[in-house]
Computed example of a mutant assay.
Amino acid sequence: MNTPELSQLGKASAYIDQYDASLLFALPREPKRTEIGIKGHVPFLGADLWTAFELSWLNPRGKPQVAIAHITVPCESTHIVESKSFKLYLNSFNNSRFESADQVREHIRTDVSAAIWHGGKVQSTAGVRLLLPELFDCEPIREMEGLSIDRLDVECSVYQPAPELLSAALDEKPVTEILTSDLLKSNCLVTGQPDWGSVQITYSGPQIDQGGLLQYIVSFRNHNEFHEQCVERIYMDIMARCKPAKLSVVARYTRRGGLDINPWRSSHPQLPPPNVRNARQ
């Protein structure tokens, strides 16, 4: 079984500039999900929304082409792709010739789909959309909608995930709210490098104590875990402690190596949030 320690994270790496799908390094979701009480079928819907800002290849005449790639990885997949391996994989397109952008898109879709099911039957494919330069001006920058809980003057002293900080008014009339924070920070599971993010929590149910929620988000500050794992931990903790009837958690992390990863988990079917970057991304 692939483990994070076997990946290229934190290691000197040769940059291959000829297309090589084998560079993608898949990591199983199951071990970290087991830690937070998920066994078997996942109790949520969602996806990991990737943006690749550094994608280039050669056309048949050897002229470089560039694009931004939006990649959607379904949360029910058995594996994630380790981010440094994704960067190395995308770099392998740099000096490879392709007939068209559609051919590049199809290679990425096929390769990522195979990786996230780790050689097993592909039950749902990754979504891939390439944005070519003539559409770059259409890419907006927009902050998450909702009420910012960062306005609260709370004391913070816990910097490892502390679900006991979460509470809700279980005996009062339910509400529907969208709450946001820009104070999410965690660290890479392998290298310990900081990962900076913003989070949006949309729910219907007993009103969540906003001060406790902010302290809980801050409590991830020294926690070592991948983006996808942090969001699933947040989702499961809120579900367990606050008992919302509906819940959606979205986090947008700042890019590293030309890639950003934006996990989204929801208790109910809905359209995925738009993959629109915020100012820090």
Results as ranks from 00 to 15, higher is better:
N94W: 08
N2S: 12
S266D: 13
L166C: 11
F25T: 00
N187D: 01
G257C: 03
L49T: 02
V112S: 05
P272E: 09
W264C: 07
E143D: 14
I234V: 15
R221S: 12
N262T: 01
Q65E: 15
A126D: 01
S83Y: 05
P163T: 12
V73K: 10
L49M: 15
F136R: 00
I38K: 12
M1W: 06
S92H: 01
P161I: 06
L45H: 07
L152I: 02
T180K: 09
A279P: 03
I116G: 02
T180W: 13
Q207F: 11
P273N: 08
P244R: 04
C75I: 08
R265H: 00
L147M: 01
G212N: 12
S267E: 09
S157R: 10
E35F: 01
S22L: 04
W50D: 04
S13Q: 09
P140S: 13
P161E: 12
P269E: 14
W264Q: 09
K243H: 15
S96V: 00
F136H: 02
L132F: 13
L213P: 12
F86P: 00
S167W: 07
M144Y: 01
P174M: 11
Y89S: 00
E155N: 13
Q281W: 05
V42D: 08
L213D: 14
N187F: 14
L166S: 07
D182V: 09
H227Y: 13
Y203G: 08
S92Y: 04
L165N: 14
P263K: 00
Y159N: 12
A101M: 04
Q281F: 03
V128Q: 06
T202M: 08
P174R: 14
D102C: 03
G46W: 02
E35T: 04
G211I: 14
N2K: 07
D102I: 10
Q281M: 06
L259F: 10
H268K: 14
H79K: 08
P244Q: 04
N59C: 06
E106W: 02
V104K: 07
W50Y: 11
I208H: 11
A69M: 09
P269Y: 00
Y203F: 15
C138D: 12
S113G: 02
T176I: 10
D20F: 04
S267H: 06
Y235C: 04
Q200L: 05
G120I: 01
E177S: 03
Y159C: 09
F220Q: 12
A240W: 00
H107A: 08
M239Q: 15
Y19T: 07
L23Q: 13
C242R: 06
S7K: 04
R233D: 10
Y89N: 00
S248R: 15
T34N: 13
L213N: 12
L271M: 12
D195T: 11
A115C: 14
A245N: 15
A245C: 11
S266I: 05
E106M: 02
S83G: 07
C75H: 08
E177A: 07
R109F: 01
A162C: 14
G119T: 08
Y216R: 13
K87H: 01
T191K: 11
